[in-house]
Simulated scan of single mutants.
Amino acid sequence: MVQKGQFLERATLVPVGREVMEGTWHRGTKAPPLLVIPPRPDEGGGMDHVIAAELVWAAANAGFPTLRFNHRGVGASQGQRGKDLALLEDAEAAMRMLMENTGASAAAVASFHGGSQVALALQAKYASVGGLCLVAPADIAPEVLSRVTCPLLVVQGEEDARLPRAKVSAAIVQAGGDLEVIDDAGPTFQRNLPQVGRAVAAWLRRLSGG
């Protein structure tokens, strides 16, 4: 039995064609639900990454349903590791399941590192992405951020120099989004990770109108 105040994700299976991906989800009463996209398989890691854990904990603690998953071929997910279109298909399947489970008409999407490529492709394809959060994005051109058409939040560590801060900031301003810079933190947020969670929870509350 889950006691009041406890955080307990439940294991789930996400169907993708004839295969299934492993995932975990947490119930909540607020909208929008949050989908967390893991790093690309060629980066290593998956849904158990500490950043993913922080994002779902913060969102669930604020009352929002969450789902995180492993791409096919990662962890216990079936299939072979894919690229580009295959990764987008994985994210599509996970978002579809999250929205069906919650009855939501839109979902917020968060990603980190190279998973930002997948999240941006998902947002460009689906109007049902009602908000996009990129944490320590990597391997993207800063100008693509200016084309995001939903509420956008980018979270970067102060010491993360992988993307030029000035160009990222200018693109976010053009998109009407927000940039949150975490003091004394690098791309892995070994310091001040809870600040990332607080920023994302506050962003979700703004999306919900709370």
Score class of each variant (00 low, 15 high):
Met1Asp: 09
Gln3Met: 12
Gly5Trp: 04
Leu8Ile: 14
Leu8Tyr: 10
Arg10Ser: 10
Arg10Tyr: 08
Arg10Glu: 15
Ala11Gln: 11
Pro15Gln: 07
Glu19Thr: 09
Glu19Leu: 14
Glu22Ile: 05
His26Gly: 14
His26Val: 09
Arg27Lys: 13
Lys30Ile: 04
Pro32Gln: 07
Leu35Tyr: 05
Val36Asp: 02
Ile37Asn: 08
Ile37Val: 15
Ile37Leu: 09
Pro39Phe: 03
Pro39Glu: 01
Pro39Cys: 11
Pro41Val: 03
Pro41Trp: 03
Asp42Ile: 13
Asp42Thr: 15
Asp42Pro: 05
Gly44Gln: 03
Gly44His: 10
Met47Asn: 06
Met47Glu: 07
His49Leu: 01
Val50Gly: 00
Ile51His: 05
Ala53Val: 13
Glu54Met: 13
Glu54Val: 02
Leu55Asp: 02
Ala59Gln: 00
Ala59Ser: 03
Asn61Phe: 08
Gly63Ser: 01
Thr66Ile: 01
Asn70Ala: 14
Asn70Leu: 05
His71Ala: 10
Val74Trp: 00
Ser77Ala: 13
Gly79Thr: 06
Arg81Gln: 14
Asp84Glu: 12
Leu85Val: 14
Ala86His: 12
Ala86Phe: 05
Ala86Val: 13
Ala86Asn: 12
Leu87Ala: 09
Glu89Asn: 12
Asp90Phe: 02
Ala91Gly: 07
Ala94Gly: 02
Met95Leu: 14
Met95Asp: 03
Arg96Tyr: 10
Met97Val: 13
Leu98Gln: 08
Leu98Met: 10
Glu100Tyr: 11
Glu100Met: 12
Gly103Glu: 12
Ala108Glu: 04
Ser111Gln: 09
Phe112Asp: 00
Phe112Ala: 06
Phe112His: 14
Gly114Cys: 01
Gly115Pro: 01
Gly115Phe: 05
Leu120Asp: 05
Leu122Ala: 11
Lys125Pro: 06
Ser128Lys: 14
Gly130Gln: 01
Gly131Ala: 10
Cys133Ile: 14
Leu134His: 00
Ile140Asn: 02
Ala141Thr: 13
Arg147Trp: 13
Arg147Ile: 00
Arg147Asp: 13
Val148Thr: 04
Val148Phe: 09
Pro151Ile: 01
Pro151Asn: 11
Val154Arg: 03
Arg162Asn: 07
Ala166Cys: 01
Ala166Pro: 01
Ala166Lys: 14
Ala170Leu: 06
Gly176His: 06
Gly176Met: 05
Gly176Ser: 06
Gly177His: 02
Asp178Pro: 06
Asp178Phe: 09
Leu179Glu: 12
Leu179Cys: 05
Val181His: 04
Val181Met: 11
Pro187Val: 07
Thr188Gln: 13
Arg191Trp: 13
Asn192Trp: 11
Leu193Trp: 11
Gln195Gly: 08
Val196Ser: 06
Ala202Tyr: 08
Ala202Gln: 12
Leu204Thr: 03
Arg206Trp: 07
Gly210Ser: 14
